[in-house]
Structure formats: structure tokens, C-alpha cells
């Protein structure tokens, strides 16, 4: 037991239905444009000449991404007002009353987790559904996933069950922030990591 909560994402099982994204918005009453959980659509490959014929090797997969409540949370490091704080169980929470809306955490986070709410004039972010955990229920995104592609649990237990991988395209190098995340990658994730793919919905999932 590490005592740290973590998310598990099975990218091979994810169908890209975005039920997690919708459940998160519903649970937290998020306005249009604010997505605490997003589903990246990765697409790559193309047509290649093989002798006299043409063959295709296209591929696509999805990766559901939210705040990874990192072990080295850069949002907590950079926040000038101390609005970002990490609990002992690893959950990074934002105190909205302290936030100035400078959006510095948005610049820094490589997962685009802190999201700016223009109506409130401040940042918002995933809470790991801390109130649901306290009530003995799973986070809304995990509960909503019809493919069981999302799970949550203790970081070490998830790693023991699924392996230690914490990175898959289009996520950043894990050593930047040490995310509390375990991934089962799609079989074509390695090709995507070599630059053979791109984000099909970058305008939806990439932070400004």
C-alpha cells in the first residue's frame, strides 16, 4: 500500500464513448468548455506502396486523461497563492477562494488538468471525486465507464496488477511530474510514440 490514490486506464479497452467525460461534467456541474476528464483520440498510419499494390496500416485508439494527482505536482509548486494543495493520500485539491485566476498552473501542467472557468474568473480541477471516495463510492468517471477501461485504487496495488507503465502517447514523460497513473497501452501506442500518429481532437483536449 502506497497510501496514494491513482487512476488506471486501459487504453486498449477504451472505445472513446466519452461517458467518463460526461459523467465528470454532470457530477461536478462543469460549464461548456471546461473538461476535467478528456478523451484523446489518437489516429495514425496511412496507405503504403507494397510492390504493385497499396496497403493500409491505419490505426486509432483512445486515452482518457484527467488530473493525475502527481507525486511531484507542478501545479502545487508554481501556484503563487497556495491555492493548490496536496493531501496525504495524494489528491491535489484547489481552494477556489485563494485562486487569483493567473492561469500559471495551466501553463505548467503537462496534462492540461487545471482548467480555467471564465465565468468564475479562476481555475478549476479534478478532485478525484473525494466526496464520493469518502462515501465509499468510486469516482464518477470510473463508475460511468461501460468498458471497464477506467479504474482507481492504491498506486502500488494498481502497479502490481497492471504493471508500472505511466506513459503512452500523447502523454508527457512521467519523470516531469511523477503522475499517480497506471496505463495498459494500446498495441499501437509505440508507433504513435515514434511520431506515426497525431491527435485527432487536439482542439478538444489540448489546454490553451
Amino acid at each position: 500500500m502506497s497510501g496514494r490514490w491513482a487512476f488506471y486506464v486501459d487504453s486498449a479497452a477504451c472505445s472513446g464513448c466519452k461517458a467518463c467525460q460526461v459523467a465528470c461534467k454532470d457530477m461536478n456541474g462543469l460549464p461548456a468548455g471546461v473538461l476535467w476528464r478528456r478523451v484523446a483520440e489518437v489516429a495514425g498510419g496511412g496507405w503504403r506502396r507494397a510492390g504493385a499494390a497499396w496497403e493500409q496500416d491505419v490505426f486509432a485508439y483512445h486515452l482518457s486523461v484527467a488530473c493525475n494527482h502527481c507525486e511531484r505536482p507542478i501545479c502545487v509548486e508554481v501556484c503563487p497563492s497556495g491555492a493548490m494543495a496536496q493531501r496525504e493520500d495524494g489528491i491535489v485539491l484547489l481552494d477556489g477562494s485563494r485562486c487569483l485566476g493567473c492561469r500559471y498552473c495551466e501553463w505548467a501542467c503537462p496534462y492540461g488538468a487545471p482548467q480555467y472557468d471564465g465565468a468564475l474568473g479562476r481555475m478549476t480541477k479534478c478532485t478525484f471525486c473525494a466526496q464520493e471516495l469518502e462515501a465509499g463510492r468510486p469516482p464518477a468517471c470510473v463508475a460511468a465507464c461501460p468498458m471497464r477501461a477506467l479504474d482507481f485504487g492504491d498506486q502500488q496495488e494498481l502497479e502490481a496488477r497492471h504493471g508500472p507503465l505511466r506513459q503512452s502517447y500523447p502523454l508527457p514523460r512521467p519523470e516531469l511530474t511523477e503522475p499517480s497513473l497506471v496505463i495498459s497501452p494500446h498495441r499501437d501506442a509505440a508507433r504513435a510514440g515514434r511520431g506515426e500518429a497525431g491527435l485527432a481532437n487536439g482542439e478538444e483536449v489540448k489546454a490553451p
Binding site: P80, G82, L100, C102, Y104, Y116, L120
Partner: peptide, 25 residues
Amino acid sequence: LHLGRPFRFWRAPTNLGRSWLSREV
């Protein structure tokens, strides 16, 4: 002008122990 809540600017130098932005302010 870049702050979403400019009237809370006074909170900016309150995380001096960790944040270089706080120290900059």
C-alpha cells in the same frame, strides 16, 4: 490585467516558500 480576479492580487506573494511567481511578485 491578466488575472481572472485582479482584486485578489494581494494573495500572489503568499506562497514564497515554493513558487517563483510568488517571489517575483
